[in-house]
Design a protein around this nucleic acid. Structure first.
Length: 563
RNA sequence: GUGCCCGUAGCUCAGUUGGAUAGAGCGUCAGCUUGCGGAGCUGAAGGUCGUACGUUCGAAUCGUAUCGGGCAUACCA
């Protein structure tokens, strides 16, 4: 039990004795830097109404009752009780709690989660639009694992439906060489075809649209040329997806695209139709009414022509997962635009009796500043930034700023660290402004800042590797109090982040720790300290290095060897 | 129309069972410089927390209203 847990119980006992109240919540917060004390609790103020006395008087009574508890207690402000803890007590607690798995916990042992990301579309280049699903989905996996879960990751590829027809027609018309066509060609073909189809529709014609449908039928009837094209497009895109994900340092265990679940989904629709969960409309479409779940828009489960759609494959996919992977939780890393869709999907799943905790881990849009100076959502119409361009640009900037003395591997780690950290620094629900100068920031609240602090720690440890540690039982740890307090918080941060996947709390923690360490070794000598202090401080640096690297690792950020 | 998200410093963002003088980073200004690695550190300026009421000893936080922005609202995904 930690010292603060212990103290919390003492306070609760005193409150029961004084006022006869059971199980009063007692929380501790840190104290503003210019006020005496290390931790504080507002319990006296919160009791004021119930007890009918003013907060300072209650604080007074509690402190008197705690006489001799061993902590320095003071009353401040409107009635805060501030607790001063010795640096040595903080050290003892950290030493006691320390292990090779410091920060991890076992709360999720025996549970299985599926993290679905980045769910890229076949035959479209990887754009920054899939940055957030990728980085957040990956971090969700890491965080759950730190909490003891087993996590299966799955790239739910968008590989079904009309787009194939569009590419087939567009490719035929483009005159491009079958063997030389790239994913970028396919991306351009798609954009051009969409525009052409729209123009054609405006003129009231449908020649091109018919041609697209013909290719879809050809594919369904296993026409050799259609199959050859389809497989080739898929091969090209997957190679591209793997390349980009590799550069981002993310990967998935499975790559089960929507096409895997068309049959399973359609069968399920029939089954639930016969069981009365779903209803058939006159036009042949199938819906799932959700009024009982507070949603007045029914979910469309099958098109009027009998074809599958997103809801159909997602249903099939969920059933497949429940039957084969037995997850307790499924996390969908998909943007905020689809919140309503997922509410429907989860309600539908409940209605038909699928038992799994579905979680839509949504995030805000990526915005950009328009030529007119307005902030707006980035869209393909206005020009999407490709992930590879973003990575190339980041690496170029890192190379320019750090000179040529870094190897390629380290440059890549810094570039990816900068990009990822900028995604995690704000709450995922907040929209991100695509501002290259901010994303590639190498100073301040940034990935490279944290990486740099970690590199410095490692260097200090390396330089003192041959130092023979001496006994430091009498060291006072006064200069290390703040660092110790931050290190002691780490397990809570890891546990807290798993609850609602609030990765910005981990990023904030990593930054706070890195900044405090910079301050610490700015003013506190380590290598040149006398033996006892030197031993103690090296012990602390070693622990801090471990925690900082671990925090960054949860975000999928690696620390380079040099900076 | 209805539902959801958002509005905090010049800019980008933190800030929950309601608590101390509302915090960071960037930018600006002023310092530290032969260091255990200065891509760092110290300090300053910068805020009626969209607005108005309400609840409370106490509101950025809770409630009501209102203004402004974004997203969604069954045959796309």
């Amino acid at each position: 039990m930690s010292i603060m847990d212990n103290f919390k119980e003492q306070i609760q006992r005193v409150i029961k004795g004084l006022y006869g109240l059971d199980d009063v919540t007692v929380d501790f917060a840190s104290v503003p830097s210019d006020i005496e004390g290390d931790y504080s609790t507002n319990v006296a103020m919160r009791l004021a109404r119930q007890v009918g006395k003013n907060p300072r008087q209650i604080a007074e009574e509690i402190i008197q009752a705690l006489e001799g508890c061993g902590y320095g207690l003071t009353i401040a402000g409107p009635g805060f009780i501030n607790i001063a803890v010795s640096g040595k007590a903080l050290y003892e607690q950290l030493a006691e709690n320390w292990s090779d798995n410091y920060g991890n916990n076992l709360s999720g042992v025996g549970k299985i989660a599926i993290s679905e990301f980045p769910s890229t579309n076949i035959a479209k280049p990887y754009s920054v639009g899939h940055l957030r699903p990728g980085t957040q989905g990956w971090a969700a996996k890491k965080v759950l694992e730190a909490n003891g879960w087993k996590v299966v990751t799955d790239n739910h590829l968008g590989d079904v439906g009309t787009p194939f027809g569009i590419w087939a027609v567009g490719f035929k018309r483009s005159g491009l060489d079958f063997n030389a066509v790239t994913v970028y060609d396919l991306g351009n073909i798609y954009i051009k075809m969409k525009a052409d189809l729209k123009a054609e529709e405006a003129e009231g014609k449908h020649e091109l649209a018919d041609e697209v449908q013909d290719w879809l039928l050809k594919l369904e009837s296993r026409d050799p040329e259609a199959i050859k094209l389809s497989e080739h497009f898929k091969e090209i895109s997957l190679a591209h997806t793997h390349e980009v994900m590799g550069r981002l340092g993310i990967s998935t265990d499975l790559e089960m695209g929507e096409s895997c679940f068309v049959e399973r989904g359609k069968d399920a629709v029939l089954e639930y139709l016969s069981k009365g969960y779903f209803e058939k409309n006159e036009d042949g479409s199938v819906i799932c009414p959700l009024d009982d779940y507070g949603i007045d828009v029914p979910m469309l489960m099958q098109k009027s022509n009998g074809a599958a759609l997103y809801a159909t494959t997602d249903l099939g996919c969920m059933l497949y997962r429940v039957e084969n992977i037995h997850p307790d939780k499924i996390i969908y890393a998909v943007g905020a635009e689809q919140k309503f869709y997922f509410e429907q999907l989860f309600a539908m799943a409940k209605k038909v009796g699928i038992e799994v905790d579905n979680y839509h881990m949504w995030f805000g849009t990526i915005d950009q500043i328009s030529p007119e100076g307005k902030r707006e959502k980035m869209s393909s119409r206005k020009g999407v930034v490709l992930m590879e361009e973003l990575l190339d640009d980041a690496e170029k900037r890192v190379r320019e700023n750090f000179g040529e003395n870094l190897n390629d591997e380290d440059i890549k780690k810094i570039a990816v660290g900068a990009i990822k950290f900028s995604d995690f620094v704000a709450d995922r629900k907040t929209g991100i402004l695509y501002d290259p100068d901010k994303i590639f920031a190498l100073a301040g609240q940034s990935g490279p800042f944290c990486q740099y602090a970690s590199v410095r720690l490692s260097k200090i440890l390396q330089k003192n590797a041959d130092f023979k540690t001496v006994e430091f039982a009498d060291y006072d740890w006064n200069e290390e109090k703040t660092v110790l307090q931050i290190l002691l918080k780490f397990p809570e941060v890891v546990a807290g982040a798993a609850e609602n996947f609030e990765m910005h709390k981990i990023a904030g923690y990593a930054f706070e720790l890195a900044q405090e360490l910079n301050r610490y070794y700015e003013k506190t000598p380590i290598s040149s300290a006398e033996d006892e202090a030197r031993s103690a401080r090296l012990w602390l640096i070693d622990k801090a290095d471990f925690v900082l690297k671990r925090a960054l690792d949860l975000l999928g950020i690696e620390v380079p060897g040099q900076m």
